[in-house]
Design a protein around this nucleic acid. Structure first.
Lengths: 157, 157
DNA sequence: CATTTTATATAGCCCGGCTATGTATAGTGG
DNA sequence: CCACTATACATAGCCGGGCTATATAAAATG
């Protein structure tokens, strides 16, 4: 008896928020989720202009500015001038940034591991598939995606 | 070829953070996730003392105090004096709080629905199972759970 | 009854998120 | 070439969630 999608989505976001706190608590990392989220986007996008970074990250442009400034201070990202348009600032992750991101993921996973260590193999497989489903949706729904593969929402006339 | 659990946990938290932003953006609700997360805990726990609420919510006690104060202002929770111990403040969700929580879940789900509308049935089933797996872990790992069914972490000597 | 322990509240900080607005560069019609 | 509009990012300033440190008050204990 499958629950309807509407209910599932509510549950999904609820458990998501709970899990966020569990993760924050487990790996008590001095950096905030926003830092790692932004680095993740930078890693997968490559050099990207600030506005595009903001919309891929689903934050406002000023928030992206703040985050990138912080990343620059940390040496985890650099801003590159665009030769064709002096207004734009291309942002890219640095090798140090990549390393820090990988470290974080590893530490976090290690901290959560005991909580999931006894998970049956098919539950692990279920999680893995769910993650890939969600990642796919999260990325496809980027409102500024120039590839425009899908226009899932209001689909401007 | 199943990916190892370590990697999966890193991916899980990453996609989780991305999804959080998607949800925040989709349902541009004036209230914060913390409010709904707290109400969720209150709904499932029933009347509960502040410290227990804090640990179930995975936030510090002062943060829980702030959140409950806010919920009280909104009329979504009440504090009840404990007749046996004048220090404790039992907190409970109100009917208005339950209604608000359900409304939020519904609005949120509606906002996300277009993004998932074309999801194949077995993907929906996968999400559903993943949610239940995660919910189970999140709840079982409550560090202050008096039922103490599982002690997944450091298992104090 | 003095002391310690426990439950919550308060103070005060930092950071992420936002809107509104400023500034500088591009683009564009005359 | 110039005035004007549009665009890309930066700055200002607010709110709220998160934390630690500490205060307060009630219970428990010797």
């Amino acid at each position: 008896m499958p629950t309807d999608l509407h209910t599932i989505l509510g549950d999904l976001v609820s458990v998501n928020h709970r899990l966020t706190r569990v993760a924050a608590h487990a790996a008590n990392n001095p950096e905030s989720p926003a830092v790692w989220r932004t680095l993740s986007v930078l890693l997968q996008s490559g050099s990207i202009r600030l506005g595009a970074l903001a919309s891929r990250s689903r934050v406002s442009q000023p928030t992206a500015t703040k985050l990138v400034s912080h990343l620059e201070l940390r040496g985890w990202a650099t801003r590159l001038a665009d030769p064709l348009d002096a207004r734009v600032s291309q942002t890219a992750i640095t090798p140090a940034g990549e390393a820090a991101l990988l470290d974080w993921r590893s530490e976090l996973a290690a901290a959560l591991l005991p909580m999931f260590a006894d998970l049956p193999a098919d539950d692990v497989a279920t999680l893995e598939r769910a993650i890939s489903i969600l990642r796919d949706r999260v990325e496809r729904s980027d409102p500024s995606d120039p590839s425009g593969l899908v226009v899932p929402f209001g689909a401007a006339s």
